[in-house]
Design a protein around this nucleic acid. Structure first.
Lengths: 131, 131
DNA sequence: CAAAATGATACTAAGATGGTATCATTTAGA
DNA sequence: TCTAAATGATACCATCTTAGTATCATTTTG
């Protein structure tokens, strides 16, 4: 099981490669820094732009820049964009109910695990990865 | 993100539907109890048989039975059969390395999360779901 | 106006997931 | 011994997700 898809992975690489210097970085620069295939990276950058994580500038001399300080971009928010909300217990014992209970006893346990995972991921920021 | 695939889900339903009474249960019985499509359930039962979780008996009056007490069948072992080993950090920042470090700072954090998740899953047994 | 950059959007290949279908084998019992 | 009821083995298939490509439009600077 993967915690992060490749989209997310690439997005994180891109975001942390932008740094907090405030300089513009082009997609080509980011391709060199991250090793991500260009068309795919461009698509990811466009999504990050729409979601407000980066600000983009067209034309010669243009590029991308973080629109927030790296320390205020949470990993879990980036994940959510590309993977949807973290729901570990999705689909579990769906319509069926456990044989001996009205509510699934496993759900509670999985919920507890999920809460922990989310809380840990909340604490990870882009900034904390490049510091 | 799903913690468990449908295979695993169905396998757990089947195992916990067998109970610990020691009686034989046929695939047809389990279909009724679990709502899983029969051919798929049969495939899953065969895998559980090969892996030693259930013992099977052919012919009229045959069926399946847990080969271990429910309390000694761990959820994480069932997961491993159908989903492979739990590796949350698989593929993460694969060949690439984070810009400012030789080792990926995220890997450590994900490893920590993974350890917790595994430890929690280790504690969940089939028996604990139907008790 | 041209070149360099991003924006928008449609398309595609491969693998994983969630099944189905078929035939072989074993066993109990009339 | 024949038959029905059960599992064993195996091959096949449809859909969805993932990971990516391709193309053209738009904006901006010089």
């Amino acid at each position: 099981m993967k915690l992060l898809t490749r989209d997310t992975d690439y997005a994180i690489r891109a975001l942390s490669s932008m740094g907090s210097s405030g300089e513009l970085v082009t997609a080509d620069d980011l391709v060199k820094k991250t090793g991500v295939p260009k068309p795919f990276l461009r698509k990811i950058l466009q999504i990050l732009g729409k979601k407000g994580f980066v600000k983009s500038y067209k034309g010669i001399g243009g590029g991308f820049r973080l629109s927030l300080p790296g320390n205020s971009i949470k990993l879990v928010d980036v994940m959510e964009i590309f993977q949807g909300p973290l729901k570990l217990n999705e689909c579990f014992f769906k319509k069926m109910v456990c044989p001996n209970r009205a509510t699934c006893p496993l759900k509670k346990k999985v919920d507890k695990i999920e809460k922990y995972v989310v809380s840990q991921l909340e604490a990870i920021t882009i900034g904390s990865l490049s510091a």
